[in-house]
Design a protein around this nucleic acid. Sequence first.
DNA 1: TTGTATGCGTTATCAA
DNA 2: TTGATAACGCATACAA
Lengths: 323, 323
Amino acid sequence: MHDVAELAGVSRQTVSRAVNDKGEIDPGTKARVLEAVRTLDYRPSRFARGLVRKGTVTAGLVIPDLMNPFYPEVAAGVLEAAEERGWQVVVWDTRTDGAREREALTVLSHQVDAVMGYLRNDDEVLGRYLGGMPLVLLERGPEQTRFAAVGVDADAGLEQGIAHLVRAGHRRIGMLDGDRPVPGARRTAFLAEARRHGLPVDDSWIVMSDQHSVAGGEVAMDRLLDARPQVTAVFGFNDLIAVGAMRAARRRGRRVPEDLAVLGFDGLALSELVEPALTTLHLDKRRLGRLAVEQVARLRSGEEPLTGPDAWLVPELVVRASA
Amino acid sequence: MHDVAELAGVSRQTVSRAVNDKGEIDPGTKARVLEAVRTLDYRPSRFARGLVRKGTVTAGLVIPDLMNPFYPEVAAGVLEAAEERGWQVVVWDTRTDGAREREALTVLSHQVDAVMGYLRNDDEVLGRYLGGMPLVLLERGPEQTRFAAVGVDADAGLEQGIAHLVRAGHRRIGMLDGDRPVPGARRTAFLAEARRHGLPVDDSWIVMSDQHSVAGGEVAMDRLLDARPQVTAVFGFNDLIAVGAMRAARRRGRRVPEDLAVLGFDGLALSELVEPALTTLHLDKRRLGRLAVEQVARLRSGEEPLTGPDAWLVPELVVRASA
DNA sequence: TTGTATGCGTTATCAA
DNA sequence: TTGATAACGCATACAA
């Protein structure tokens, strides 16, 4: 800025006026200044600006895997709501790696005003890396964290899902669980519903899929079919895993849904496109993202964050051909 | 910071030391300072920090639609490469809206150090909104812009694609084009290849799909089948449109690939999951994203940006069941 | 181990 | 219409 002022033969203050399109400046000098700006390729420092002009809000969004179509949709909701508030969003993909997640927090805690995201590290670790930064957790049970959170009501979802399967006559229902740091709410809800319906189902009917992907679902389904060949229906942790289950089952000669019913979770666009189309517990992922932004806003304004039903979206059973 | 220093009974300098984990500080005072930090909920201003510590780089990434699985994959590449360089990325979803895109540029030009993305506005407009900010354009032809760019070699792709269809005996080949601000390279390449092979194909065999989505592809395919019922193969602007084409064709009683061969573009994960699996011109989208980051780095360092083959990825024909 | 002085690049205030 | 001066909040060099 100093150089520009010198080249244009004015003070730095006048440079500021020209660059920011203020009034109170002679059109001639303004042109001269802008000319100097161009020749010197000068651009104002965003830091100096931010220091003196308050009001720019930047939030961090941490997600495990952009390749899983679930997260882009949540992110779309976040970006949309952030834009409406005039916020910017720095996105970080941890590729489901705890260490990378901590790195993300380290960096973001210095560079943004609040963080939201799917985080695997536990409260204690998060607190250490956060340094007082407001945090909104996605998808962590209300009693599982001291931070503000938004998430999914797995109980309500599985109540519908299992009831649907049982209504269709299934009793030997397996589950392909996702690999999560905390014992998942979906698994817990699955077992609770199984018990409630008196199904002959316990932990041995659950197989972990170490990847939240179609490939992971295929592998897991192979294992489930080996361990529990008598299974007639399977609930997938998410749609990708459920699609993998369908593929593995069909590869092994089982027809879907005749020999094996498949129920997914999330309601991805993909679920309508596979064959047979996937019956799934559909979630409003975009709304989840918007809700996260609202929680951040509450944190920032000192309001009480949302809790209970307001912060816990209920999935909706969408019945298609697979179950 | 001042308040913290006062509460802890030290100078601001000592606060800085405590907060930044420097040596040269008595453990006792450090604890006292951190205590004060906590009670006052103090967090350093990222602007003041940035002002004094150089080196934080933030890039902007502008994409048209996070819901189209193509873009998250590019974004994943961008984030990955950015992380390796220690950069942060502010993501903006324009929802394919030119005005929203200009707003993004307005904001980002003040808040980041460089911008990359899929932009519809033309060079002149971009220049006006950019204010000197370095820009890397994705997917704009080399001769179509004065900015640095990375993209896809549609010619090379369609050469393989059309040759494959012709080899299988197709001559009446239609295209479902995407709706783009500039006349698309894919369309041009499609027509050139059709001519080269002497196919009876011209603009009347091309239908615009106003949405880059499965639904858009369905609608467009309906229109194509109405206009050109004799079509035996169709090339979709992208995989989503191609999948839509398959669905429309089958809905109207045409078998794929027996009655209608379908060729996609992009190589999304989805293309393997639909039935029949989609033959497509597969693109390394993650690499595209990484390349964009490299271009930004070159721009920043004053190096010559990549051009020609280095910046233009060649798609690879992946033959599956649909064609 | 701690404090003082200085500067980072910008805008706001006020005087010229 | 312009310029001088004082913040903005922090970190670095140097002195104590």
